[in-house]
Design a protein around this nucleic acid. Structure first.
Length: 748
DNA sequence: GTACTCTGCGCC
DNA sequence: AAACGGCGCAGAGTAC
């Protein structure tokens, strides 16, 4: 029996609620008093809730939908028992608050919903064609809600994964409502992601021209309820008036949700499967070694505070994070740096003769610049009572369909920069909590960052299996472009980076290829590095200037520019992969033709099809991939007044970039990159299904890498499953090579 | 106070 | 004939 169920029964049997709550909290305290929360609740004390009084009296925005039924005693529509083929939809949205400082933004929906001090304020739900229904926690377990949840033919439609978490952790585990399997949930936010429109309700509604707008005042009110009053230090009391206002806000959110789902409709069958997989992964969670994280945090704090103090002493009170002011200080000491990026600072340390204080300031900036160790706080904030962090992945967050990640953001854990022979030895050293224990590996903060991945840990009795595709984007690109000679090289196990380098530097190709990896001279390694950058970087129409800036900064400017121009324009485009520029033109011309002929599918030579369609009333260029998957370019319009330098009509679309909904000018290289990235994602998704079907549970995906957790996984099984490829990839000849490892802790 | 932009950094 | 990659996060600074 779960702790919640126990508490629920205790309450029903008349046990003092305070006692029950204390018991529950104790259960949590044993695993995690959550030091980070203490901080956030303290800052909550300082937060003003003065606005509360404003908001209470602020008018409720007009509601467009007419039907309103807030009388919970009115019987709802009885659940369908006659037909399972009639699928009903229930739209629903929770408003909640937390009174312990647990922050939804940092804890994530799953940790937040599991917190004993998270409470439901209101739940508004609405059946297709029916009236809004209000459920309040005071009603407890009740019909028709419970019957709807139990009814296999009823879908629950929500916005984002939040409702799934609250339903499971609170409605099911605390109140005894029936659990709703993933297959019966529909997430309108996933639809937004798939169709590449903004992912927040407030932002997407105006984009689709919905007659509903987000109730911003209501949103602020609900947020206020989770913050302590600045003066009294107490959480606000939820008065009947406030509850009414929250319910009104809640209802408007449901209307917004309906507008979004009605506009976009459901995901395709194919993507629906991917979303369900996404939810399984997110609910499963990723194991975190909390003991390791705690110890690492201690070391990090000791080491960092000493460095910050030293820095402040040298600079009259500055912090190394104050970029502008640190640069000013450096200028004052006679050293003007164009920026204080790692590379610039490192170069200054290497090349200039510096006074001791300037040198030390730059050194400290280098050590403290990485914010990777903030992930320790992120881990503690979102890890659940069972030591697993949930809700880390965001389905289809990038236009081509890749996942992104949040909270811990496990997709950008630093790669180790110090040499680690035995991970368990290092883990043990970190667990001492003493910076000195790390000295044998290097600078403590650098060692910690290098050990960060080890905090991701398989559960007792289980192992991680990981596998990734080697240079998958280059492989897909070359295959799609029909550059078969290079695909054959890859398939034959040739190091194409060296093949490329041999061409650039005019080396004896066969002899260069024959050298064993560990016998490459420094110069030869450098040549291979440039070859690698060329193969991976030039595929999407990068120009010579950018190539020089990105990869050849260490050379004198003129020499670098000359070499870059030769590499990009002559070696790569003309000789090594001449079919690739043809692919850019192919896709760009096809997309443009589709834009000029609405509704007519235009097939590029590579088999990709573009069609200008209407989605949610918005002109959308739909790109159909080789397996039927779509990429969407929303608000796609031809700009009648403009021609590009070659006399072609120009078109634009809109996308969410850098936190803003903005106009984008597409070009061939970018369209190619989207298609290639999307196809690489399809290859990975295909393998993810293969792992799951064979009973290997996926816990993380990182673009070209998959991590599974299983008691008996082996490297051989990982490689065997990972190497298979779908028919379409077989057909165009995508070479697939994979590397795998098995172990207790996550690593690179 | 909140929202946004900028710089910087990490991964692919 | 061909250019600007993506993602999230932290912290500082600015505007409202």
């Amino acid at each position: 029996m779960s702790r919640w169920r126990e508490a629920f029964l205790a309450l029903r049997n008349g046990v003092d609620p305070q006692v029950v709550l204390r018991t529950l909290k104790q259960g949590f305290d044993t695993y995690d008093p959550c030091d980070t929360w203490q901080k956030s609740s303290e800052s909550g004390v300082k937060t003003s809730c003065d606005t509360l009084r404003h908001i209470e009296s602020s008018p409720v925005p007009s509601v467009t939908s007419v039907a309103t039924d807030f009388d919970s005693k009115t019987p709802g529509i009885p659940p369908s028992v006659t037909s399972v083929t009639t699928v009903k939809g229930v739209y629903l949205d929770f408003e909640t608050r937390n009174t312990s400082g647990c922050n939804l933004d940092t804890a994530g929906a799953w940790r937040y919903a599991a917190d004993p001090r998270t409470e439901v304020l209101t739940l508004t739900y609405k059946l297709d064609g029916g009236a809004h229904q209000l459920w309040l926690p005071s009603l407890g377990w009740c019909d028709p809600l419970a019957s709807l949840a139990a009814d296999a033919s009823t879908s629950f439609i929500c916005f984002a994964g939040f409702e799934l978490a609250v339903w499971q952790r609170i409605m099911v585990e605390r109140l005894g409502f029936p659990s709703i399997p993933i297959g019966r949930w529909i997430d309108a936010q996933a639809e937004c992601s798939y169709f590449a429109v903004p992912r927040t309700l407030g932002k997407v509604l105006p984009v689709i021209g919905a007659p509903v707008a987000k109730d911003e005042a209501g949103k602020r009110l609900v947020r206020c309820l989770s913050k302590r009053d600045r003066k009294t230090g107490e959480y606000p009391e939820v008065t009947p008036e406030i509850l009414d206002r929250v319910a009104a806000y809640n209802q408007i959110d449901v209307d917004g949700l309906i507008a979004v789902h009605t506009a976009f409709g459901s995901l395709s069958e194919q993507e629906r499967r991917v979303w369900e997989l996404d939810q399984r992964i997110n609910q499963r969670g990723l194991g975190i070694d909390v003991e390791l994280v705690r110890a690492a945090k201690r070391i990090s704090e000791i080491s960092t505070s000493a460095l910050l103090e030293e820095f402040a002493g040298l600079t009259r009170g500055l912090s190394p994070y104050q970029v502008g002011k640190t640069r000013e200080w450096l200028t004052g000491r006679g050293f003007t740096l164009e920026n204080i990026q790692e590379e610039t600072v490192q170069a200054a340390l290497d090349e200039l003769t510096l006074p001791e204080d300037v040198r030390r300031v730059l050194e400290i900036r280098l050590i403290t610049a990485s914010t990777s160790l903030k992930k320790l706080d992120a881990m503690l904030a979102c890890v659940g009572p069972d030591g697993r962090a949930r809700g880390l992945l965001r389905y289809h967050a990038a236009t081509p369909g890749r996942w992104s990640a949040e909270l811990i953001q496990p997709q950008n854990l630093p790669r180790p920069t110090v040499e680690i022979e035995d991970s368990e030895e290092l883990v043990a050293a970190v667990k001492t909590g003493d910076p000195k224990a790390l000295r044998r590996w290097g600078e403590p903060l650098e060692v910690l960052a290098s050990a960060l991945r080890f905090a991701v840990c398989a559960e007792e009795g289980s192992l991680f299996g990981a596998a990734d595709f080697s240079a998958i984007e280059a492989c897909v690109l070359l295959a799609l472009a029909g550059q078969h000679d290079k695909c054959s090289l890859i398939a034959g196990g040739v190091d194409i980076y060296r093949d490329m380098a041999a061409m650039i530097y005019g080396l004896d190709r066969d002899r260069f290829l024959a050298i064993r990896e560990e016998e490459l001279t420094l110069e030869q390694s450098e040549q291979r590095r440039i070859g690698k950058n060329t193969v991976l970087g030039c595929g999407f129409s990068m120009g010579g200037l950018r190539f020089r800036n990105q990869y050849l900064r260490h050379l004198p400017r003129q020499e670098g520019e000359k070499l870059a121009a030769g590499i990009v324009y002559t070696h790569y485009r003309k000789t090594w992969a001449p079919k690739v520029p043809q692919l850019w033109r192919d896709l760009e011309a096809s997309a443009r033709r589709a834009m000029l002929h609405p509704g007519i599918p235009i097939k590029a030579r590579c088999g990709i099809v573009y069609t200008l369609d209407k989605i949610a009333g918005l002109p959308t260029l739909v790109c159909r991939l080789l397996n039927g998957k779509h990429i969407h370019y929303v608000n796609a319009r031809v700009d009648a007044n403009k021609l590009d330098p070659y006399g072609n009509p120009v078109w634009t679309y809109w996308a969410y970039r850098k936190g803003q909904w903005r106009e984008i000018d597409p070009y061939g290289g970018q369209l190619t990159e989207n298609v290639v990235q999307a196809l690489a994602r399809e290859l990975l998704v295909d393998r993810m299904f293969a792992f799951e079907e064979r009973g290997y549970q996926i816990v993380l995906t990182v673009h070209d890498e998959v991590l599974i957790e299983h008691p008996q996984i082996t490297k051989m099984v990982m490689e065997k499953i990972m190497t298979e490829r779908p028919q379409w990839a077989e057909k165009i000849g995508v070479p697939v090579a994979t590397k795998a490892w098995v172990g207790k802790r996550y690593r690179k």
